[in-house]
Design a protein around this nucleic acid. Structure first.
Lengths: 153, 153
DNA sequence: GCTTGACCTAGAGTATGCTCTAGCATGTTC
DNA sequence: GAACATGCTAGAGCATACTCTAGGTCAAGC
């Protein structure tokens, strides 16, 4: 156990909010805010009304981080958390929610990859321009999709 | 030319803000806001102070859309636009800015792909749970990274 | 029993990126 | 020359996701 964990008779392995903030890389503020938003299942309080966590909450916050990172909104995460709180009766719903998210992430990766191709083409265009010393010819496709308006119209 | 283009003696091929809003899929508000943010090079006005655009602005807005979509902030886009406005002296800087962005996008795609693997594993886990009727064993790795806290602690 | 540090709640403030409103001007059409 | 669409500016409002402040409580150590 972390030497900084405040002593308490709540439980021998109990974690307080400062502990999971440090271990999850979030601020104490954010963790309390997540709880207020309904994103923290299974948080109990000790005699002094302090929040008590377990190691599972680190894993949970890690999952939340990845879902947030991949564009899941707080609202959607709340829906998911509600299902988790309801227990095993909601397994299929949870699976469906994650599968929806999976499809969205796959679509986003495809979009980003496509956008990356345009950036690649732009960079190549600048390289040519620098090498030739004059603006290279652009294909009609590129002209239609990527050419900025002239400096002065 | 679009039949809806308002007639004007400004120029035969001139586009007004409503035209490029329709053709770029943005709102008139957004285009004016982009201009206020310094993201619209080469916009001139006609006698009646109306903004006049060219086809190039459609291509520009398309580039802007892709850069925004891939996470470039308005602030960074403004920097890029400033360089575009300054003409060919800033070619190397523009290339460097885009190359930075390219690296960020590549890193993001890698992160998303990694996060997707966790979601995949989660879905598989739920499938097993549903199939077996009881919570499957989780590897220590998965437990540490992805297991939500129990419904009741 | 007093200090110290971590924690508590309620609510205000911030950053980003739009989105909309109000009130007025301009230009075309009938 | 009146109606109507479209445009203009300045600025308010909004959604999202935090982030921080104020003012107080609690437990442990000295």
């Amino acid at each position: 156990m972390d030497a900084r964990t405040p002593p308490s008779r709540a439980a021998p392995g109990a974690l307080y909010i400062g502990d999971i903030a440090r271990r999850s890389g979030r601020s104490v503020h954010t963790i309390r805010w997540y709880e207020a938003q309904g994103l923290m299942p299974g948080v109990v309080r000790d005699r002094g009304r302090r929040r008590v966590y377990s190691d599972d909450h680190i894993g949970w916050l890690d999952l939340v981080e990845r879902l947030r990172l991949t564009g899941m909104s707080i609202r959607q995460l709340r829906e998911y958390t509600v299902l988790v709180k309801q227990g095993s009766a909601t397994l299929r719903k949870r699976r469906a929610l994650l599968a929806d998210h999976q499809r969205r992430v796959q679509a986003m990766i495809a979009k980003w990859t496509e956008a990356l191709a345009l950036v690649d083409a732009k960079i190549e265009f600048y390289d040519e321009w620098v090498a030739k010393g004059s603006r290279p010819a652009v294909s009609a496709q590129q002209r239609a999709r990527a050419r900025p308006p002239a400096t002065r119209p």
